[in-house]
Amino acid sequence: MFLGTHLPRLDDKGRLTLPAKFRDALAGGVMVTKGQDHCLFVFPRAEFEQMANKVASASFTNESVRAYQRYLFASTDEQRPDGQGRISIVQELRNYAGLTKECAVIGAVNRLEIWDSQAWQRYLEAHEGSYAEAREEVLPGVF
């Protein structure tokens, strides 16, 4: 399970060091792809394969399904963390997420998300008020 917020830096070669506490779970390889809200999703390979099978089984006769499949699969890059826990973020994905130097890597249960740190702060500020309201929609009757 991936939880918490970590603040690594992107080096000059476009490499990012993944949080040490997640390295064992990611040692088998990761799939880096465009997420929503201009962040990157980082899935363990096995988790991505399960999701990809669901996406691939959707009816490709539906235009929006084909568009989603193309967008997701064309923008996915497979990486294997090196001995220091670093992965390379390809330029296309860095551009999409607006990654420069300072990054935020957040745990999102089954995946990590990589954000430009300033974009992450703006997102938090913009959505802080809706957090309490969303609880009722996400977890009705709980808490």
Rank of each mutant, 00 (worst) to 15 (best):
K34D: 05
P19I: 14
K21Y: 11
S59G: 11
W120P: 00
K21A: 13
A74W: 06
P8V: 03
Q91I: 05
E113W: 00
S130E: 15
S57P: 00
A52V: 09
A25T: 14
M31Y: 03
F60C: 03
C39Y: 00
V90D: 10
D24Y: 00
L124I: 15
A52F: 11
F60Q: 06
R94N: 08
E125C: 00
E125K: 02
G141A: 08
S64P: 00
T61H: 15
R9K: 14
L124N: 07
M31P: 00
V32C: 07
R66L: 14
Y96N: 10
V142L: 15
A104I: 11
I87H: 02
L7G: 04
K13W: 05
E113I: 01
T5K: 05
I89S: 05
K54W: 02
S59V: 07
D12P: 00
A108V: 04
L10P: 00
L139R: 15
Q91F: 00
A56D: 13
Q69M: 08
W120S: 07
S75M: 06
T33C: 09
Y71A: 15
Q91R: 09
R45S: 14
E137V: 12
L139M: 13
R111M: 05
N53D: 15
Y96S: 13
M51N: 06
F43M: 11
D12C: 01
V109Q: 11
V65N: 14
D24W: 01
Q79K: 03
A20S: 08
A134T: 15
N53I: 03
G141P: 00
G29T: 11
V30K: 04
R94T: 14
V30R: 04
H38Y: 10
G83L: 03
F43R: 13
K34W: 00
F73W: 04
L7H: 11
V138D: 02
I89C: 10
E133K: 11
P8N: 03
F73T: 09
L7C: 06
D24V: 15
K34Q: 14
A52S: 13
D82R: 02
E92C: 03
F48I: 07
E47W: 01
L124F: 04
S75P: 01
A126D: 06
R86C: 06
F60I: 11
R45G: 01
W120A: 13
F143L: 07
M1D: 11
D37Q: 10
R45P: 00
E63W: 04
